[in-house]
Design a protein around this nucleic acid. Sequence first.
DNA 1: CTGATTGTTAAGCACATACTTAAGTATTCG
DNA 2: CGAATACTTAAGTATGTGCTTAACAATCAG
Lengths: 117, 117
Amino acid sequence: MLNNQTEPQAGDQELDGVFHALADPTRRAMLVRLCEGPATVSQLAEPFGMSLPGIVQHLQVLEASGLIRSEKIGRVRSCSVNPAAVRRAENWLGQRRTPGERRLDRLESFLDTQPPH
Amino acid sequence: MLNNQTEPQAGDQELDGVFHALADPTRRAMLVRLCEGPATVSQLAEPFGMSLPGIVQHLQVLEASGLIRSEKIGRVRSCSVNPAAVRRAENWLGQRRTPGERRLDRLESFLDTQPPH
DNA sequence: CTGATTGTTAAGCACATACTTAAGTATTCG
DNA sequence: CGAATACTTAAGTATGTGCTTAACAATCAG
C-alpha cells in the first residue's frame, strides 16, 4: 500500500448513480409510478409539466443508474423498475447503524425469541 | 385543483437533500466513519487527499441534509450521525416495492408464522 | 504575548445538471 | 401512399457542484 488515502471503492460508482438518480423529485415520482407496474414514456410524462425530451433525459439517468430498465417494441418504449437496484440502495442504508442502534436491534431480536407472557 | 400537473410535495425537499448528499462517495465515506462514533473535522478529513475547505463543504452538505449534526466546542467541531434521517431515507426505499415483491413479502411472513417441520 | 492548532470565508474555475426549442426518425393507421 | 403517433437527437442556456488557493478568525499552550 503506497497510498494511504481513501480511494473510491468498486461498487461505490453504482451507489453514486443510484443516489444521484434518487436526488431529483421528478425521477422519484417516476420511480413511484413504475412501482405500480410498467409504463411507456408518454404515460410517465403525462403527470409532469415538462417537455418530452426533458422526461427522456430523466429516464436515461434512471436507466443508467440501474434503477429502471426499458425495452422498445415498435415505436413504444416500455419502462419498468429494477427492484434489485432499489434493494441494494436500501441495504446500504440499512447497514448505516450507530452502535446505539445496533444495541437496540439486538434487544428487539432477543425479545422476539421470548414467548409472550 | 386548477393545476393537474404533479407538483413537488412537502417532504420531497428533505429527500432531495438527503439523496443528493448520499450521491457523493466522499460524503458516504464520512457517514460510514461517523456511524462508528462522533469525530472532529480534522479526523474526518484525514483519510482523504483533499483540502480542509473541500472537506468542510462536504460536511455542510451532509448537515444541511439533516444526515449529520455538529457542535463546535472551543476550536473543535464535533460531528455525529443523525440516525433518524438515515432511517427516513431507508424507509422511503423500503416502500418502493413492486406488487410482485409485496406478494413475496406476504408469503415470507406467512411462513414465519408456521412452526418448523 | 506568541505561535501553533483548528476551522472558516471568499473567490474562482472546470465541469455537470436540468431544462428548453427545433428538427429528425421510426412505426402504425386509414 | 400520407398523416399521425411516439419517441429521439442536437444544440443552447442558466444554474449548480466539487474542487482549489489565499486570506482570515478563534482558541489553546508555553
